[in-house]
């Protein structure tokens, strides 16, 4: 079942074409990674799927409501004046849930990302990894059917990135939302997604759609397997070829 789809979508900004034409389909419960060079329009594609931006040409189809979509940015994007718990409860309160119910749900979501003890902490008191977990908990609070992750681990160190990647896959396994994951990191894309879409430099087009080996969540030792290394090589080669062609 299709969750969201871009059909021959093109986006132009005043400085020129930014994206497309591009076709992209996300099925229910599917985890897809979008890799490509900076400025190729990955974040624009994500905003289109979220319904936060309109295309100049083509159409965006969605089988779910706006409230069933959640977004996580590169920065945790937390309100500094609210506690971790209140940040997670924010989308619930905006959608009209009562204070106590929102609090209860926010507590559950914080527990899911392993931050039950940090409910009363403010964003400034959290490490980068903890703040990103709060951001993930907030995205999960509305029980979304589509989760859009816009380079969420880009500002984190390698160990935290890997831990959070496994956490995201663990969370996906519980409620199975469709996930579109934007990243620059090819290994991360192959590890986390069932499909990796490769984009060409701006205006971005999809030049490759590669299925990754094995099931989610990944078994131990997946990163060192030959199939994983081979897929990483294939994606990297496609990326390099699209960059060369653009140059």
């Amino acid at each position: 079942m299709m969750i969201a789809e871009l059909r021959s979508v093109r986006v132009d900004y005043s400085r020129g074409p930014a994206l497309g034409p591009i076709d992209l389909t996300l099925a229910a419960e599917e985890v897809v990674a979008l890799v490509g060079p900076s400025g190729c329009g990955k974040s624009t594609a994500m905003r289109l799927l979220a319904g936060l931006e309109q295309p100049c040409a083509g159409s965006v189809e969605r089988s779910i409501g706006k409230g069933q979509t959640s977004l996580v940015f590169q920065a945790p994007t937390l309100a500094p004046w609210l506690t971790a718990l209140d940040n997670v409860a924010l989308p619930l309160k905006l959608s009209g849930l009562s204070g106590e119910a929102a609090r209860q749900r926010a507590e559950d979501c914080l527990a899911q990302v392993g931050l039950k003890g940090a409910a009363g902490a403010r964003p400034a008191q959290l490490s980068g990894g903890m703040a990103m977990r709060v951001s993930l908990a907030r995205a999960l609070a509305t029980d979304p059917r589509l989760l859009l992750l816009d380079e969420p681990f880009a500002a984190l160190d390698e160990i935290t990135r890997r831990t959070l990647a496994d956490d995201v896959l663990g969370l996906w396994f519980r409620s199975r939302p469709a996930i579109l994951f934007v990243t620059h990191n090819v290994e991360e894309a192959v590890y986390m997604a069932q499909r990796v879409l490769v984009m060409s430099p701006g205006p971005g087009r999809i030049v490759g759609d590669i299925r990754t080996p094995g099931d989610l969540p990944r078994p131990e030792g997946y990163r060192t397997s030959a199939a994983f290394r081979e897929t990483v090589e294939t994606v990297s080669r496609l990326l390099a070829a699209s960059l060369k062609a653009a140059a």
Binding site: A50, G51, P91, S95
Partner: peptide, 8 residues
């Protein structure tokens, strides 16, 4: 954008 997404 998040506020817009959540229909604020």
């Amino acid at each position: 954008r998040l506020f817009d997404l959540y229909g604020a």
